[in-house]
Amino acid sequence: MSEAADVHINDVGVTFPDGPDGRPLEAIRKIDEHIEAGSFVSIVGPSGCGKSTLLSLVAGMQMPTRGEIVIGDRRVTAPDRSVGFVFQEESTLPWKTVEENVSFGLRLAGVDRSEQRRIAKEMLQLVGLAGFESAYPSELSGGMRQRVAIARTLALDPTVLLMDEPFGALDQQTRLLIGAEVRRIWRDTNKTVMFVTHDIQEAILLSEEVWVMSFRPAEVVDVIQIDLPPDRDSSVVGTERFNALFGRIWGTVQGEAMHAFHVLEEGAGEGDRHHSRT
């Protein structure tokens, strides 16, 4: 298994040449952060603030207009198999079996067929889907399909795992269960994880660190260390410390979400805001 890599986001900014009104749109103003190898970082913020754009930049699927991203000692200039991506949308290929889906990335990489099967079996075991090798995605629940997507990403043994609202389409119970699975997998594999979510509770339960992003042009306005026990489960929800963390994150997100609401409502440009960082 490959070593986890650290991620340096160095003074990164993104401006799209054509915004909705035809003028250039500054999506990300400046993000200058560092993620330790093997950390689990969640990113929360108002809708449309650029969280997914940030993940696309780290994945190399989009290039920043300013600054650079360095993973380990590699400057990101294009997608690389060492960076795995789990999408929010249904991304299992319906014409492939579970095993074929999991080994799809390996097949594209030209890995030997017997090795593909071995790794696929191992990954399906890891995500708790052993015995479903021959099933098709249409025969699985939404949560199981998302676990297939996670297994497919892990099969390439990435050093960094990017997850863009991977549980967005799942119901609350499934989210809790699969969230616990993801945290267990992270602890077993020790990958560096960047996890985008709208759910503050989910962010606190899963992560070591939570970044709160502002509305456009995005910046990281707060970084919160989650000092809950490493072997935590959903029983920490409602504890004094959990509530304090929730209150702090919600306090910042709420302000940004209200700002986003007013900006979108009035169709006005960005206003002056004072960002604090603790």
Binding site: P79, G84, F85, F87, S91, L108
Partner: peptide
Amino acid sequence: PPVYLRLADSLTASSRQ
């Protein structure tokens, strides 16, 4: 679905693949 093409992109599939 655009996500299929983004998936191929993230898995560094060639244009032919």
